[in-house]
């Protein structure tokens, strides 16, 4: 039996200790947010937060979690309503197939928690590990900007940075 804390709740699961966290989230805890994309840490579809740091949940054996707390897309809610990032993605219609979007939102969350006013370049380089094949990037960038503003910060243009 392995114990893990996901979105503030403790769970006990009966799986092989080498099972990647992703499979536990999806199959044992029925959380749809994190997706299987590559199993190789190359695409970011499975991104979750481990103690505020974005990680590829496809590469983290569940037994290696220790006391670290897991947050997934499902945990990014405020009072039962979508949090600023999911709301902003909806407002910007920042999805086509949407398979990558949960990973995008979670990775962006990590950035905005740490740096409420990143530059556009910082947003782009922070999101670089995550792939989108539909080409929704421009909308994703707009959604992150909108969310940053809703959270009291913003995304600075490069021009602002170097006048």
């Amino acid at each position: 039996m392995i114990t893990l804390t996901v979105n503030g709740k403790a769970h006990q699961v009966e799986v092989d200790p080498d099972t990647p966290l992703l499979y536990v989230l999806r199959n044992e805890l029925a959380l749809n947010g994190a997706k299987f994309g590559c199993g190789l840490g190359q695409c970011g579809a499975c991104t979750v937060l481990l103690d505020d740091k974005p990680v590829f949940s496809c590469l983290v054996p569940v037994a290696a979690l220790g006391a670290r707390k897991v947050r997934t897309l499902e945990g990014l809610q405020a009072n039962g309503k979508p949090g600023p990032l999911p709301s902003a993605f909806e407002a910007e219609q920042a999805a086509q197939c949407g398979y990558c979007i949960a990973g995008m939102i979670v990775r962006a969350q990590a950035l905005l928690e740490k740096n409420p006013r990143p530059t556009e370049e910082e947003v782009r380089s922070h999101l670089a590990p995550n792939l989108c094949r539909c080409g929704t990037h421009m909308r994703i960038l707009r959604a992150v900007r909108r969310a940053a503003e809703a959270m009291g910060g913003g995304v600075r243009d490069v021009a602002e940075q170097t006048p």
């Binding site: 959380l31 749809n32 947010g33 997934t72 897309l73 499902e74 809610q77 979508p82 999911p86 993605f89 909806e90 219609q93 999805a95 949407g98 979007i101 949960a102 939102i105």
Partner: peptide
């Protein structure tokens, strides 16, 4: 289809 996609539905 977007609400489910951005909320883990």
């Amino acid at each position: 289809d977007i609400p489910a996609k951005v909320s883990g539905g």
